[in-house]
Simulated assay, not measured.
Amino acid sequence: MTRVCLIGNDDVNLQYELLSRETSREALATYDLRRPFENSLAVRTVSVGAAVTLLNDLQWYLTRFVDTALVQEPSISDEEWLSRSLATQLRNGDVEPRETDEFCKVYGLERVDRGEPNAAAERDGDGAEDTQDRADDSDAENGGDREADATLRLVEPLYVRRTDGELPAYDLREVEETLVVRLTESEYSP
């Protein structure tokens, strides 16, 4: 299954914004919602094409509330994500799967105590609690390796280029884990 993950802007509660509006709520109604990162929303779709279509359906909301839209296609990588632009190029046949790994953005993943106050948590409502419950279930399904009282936050992306099959190490801050997002060449060097 192809995964889609939306990372909200810092100044909004993404779950609230998407689930409180009829059109986006209806677009997401058939999906099992997850929250793998702080202020995020993730779903599973049947293909890259379905993932890109969902993102296109949510475009109005993505423009206003989403910082980053990611797609993960298991036939390409079980661990690395694709940017929305790269997923679209892949779906359209403009790029071959083996040509997607050169340009990357690596995020640090930082553990955050769920009890830590933040602007997004203060505005929870209209289904956000239910979404968090399902996110907790997802953590358990994924091996339960995350602490029950912590969540992960994406921090400071590092733009890198894969050479000889290897990515440079993330060195912007001390983190235990990283998240790799494959990019188009134009996203890598705007």
Rank of each mutant, 00 (worst) to 15 (best):
V95K: 01
L167N: 05
P74L: 04
N56E: 05
R153Y: 08
D171Y: 03
G127D: 09
T2K: 00
Y16V: 12
R35H: 08
V52A: 03
A121S: 14
V112M: 14
E116P: 02
L109R: 11
E102F: 07
C104W: 04
A50V: 07
D133Y: 10
E141C: 07
D149M: 07
R134N: 09
G127K: 11
R161T: 15
R44V: 13
I7K: 02
G165A: 06
D149H: 12
E38M: 13
A140I: 13
R161A: 13
D145M: 08
T2D: 11
L33Y: 06
G143S: 06
A29F: 07
E129N: 07
S24D: 05
E96N: 10
V71C: 01
A140L: 15
R44T: 15
P157G: 10
T100I: 07
L183T: 08
L18T: 00
Q132A: 14
S75Y: 06
T88G: 01
L55T: 00
E80T: 07
D139Y: 09
E116V: 13
V180Y: 02
D57I: 02
T88A: 12
S85I: 02
S75N: 11
T63L: 15
L179D: 08
R21N: 14
I76D: 02
Q89R: 08
V181T: 12
N118K: 15
V181D: 01
N39A: 08
E80W: 03
E122G: 06
I76M: 08
P190N: 08
A29Y: 06
T63D: 13
D113N: 14
D164F: 10
E80G: 05
D171P: 02
S40Q: 05
D10R: 13
D57A: 07
S77V: 06
V175H: 09
N142T: 03
E38W: 10
E99Y: 02
E187M: 06
P190H: 09
V46C: 11
L172Q: 12
D171F: 04
E166C: 07
D133C: 04
T88R: 11
G49R: 12
S40L: 06
R35C: 14
E177C: 08
R134W: 05
E187G: 00
V160P: 09
E174R: 13
R173F: 04
E17W: 03
E17Y: 05
E147A: 15
L14A: 10
R84M: 06
N39D: 10
R98F: 03
D124I: 09
V181P: 04
V43H: 01
Y16S: 10
A148Y: 08
A148V: 12
T151K: 14
R173W: 02
D11R: 13
T151F: 04
Y61H: 11
E141P: 00
L152K: 09
L167V: 05
P168W: 05
I7Y: 03
E187C: 04
E185M: 06
Q72P: 02
E102S: 14
Y170C: 09
V12N: 05
R182G: 02
A120D: 09
K105V: 10
N118I: 11
V160D: 01
C5Y: 02
D67Y: 11
E187F: 03
Q72A: 15
L33S: 09
L62Y: 00
E26V: 08
L41W: 00
R161F: 03
T163C: 04
L172K: 15
S85N: 13
V66I: 06
Y188K: 08
G8H: 04
L183C: 04
T68K: 12
I7P: 00
S20F: 06
L70F: 04
D139N: 12
N56M: 03
R161W: 01
T184E: 00
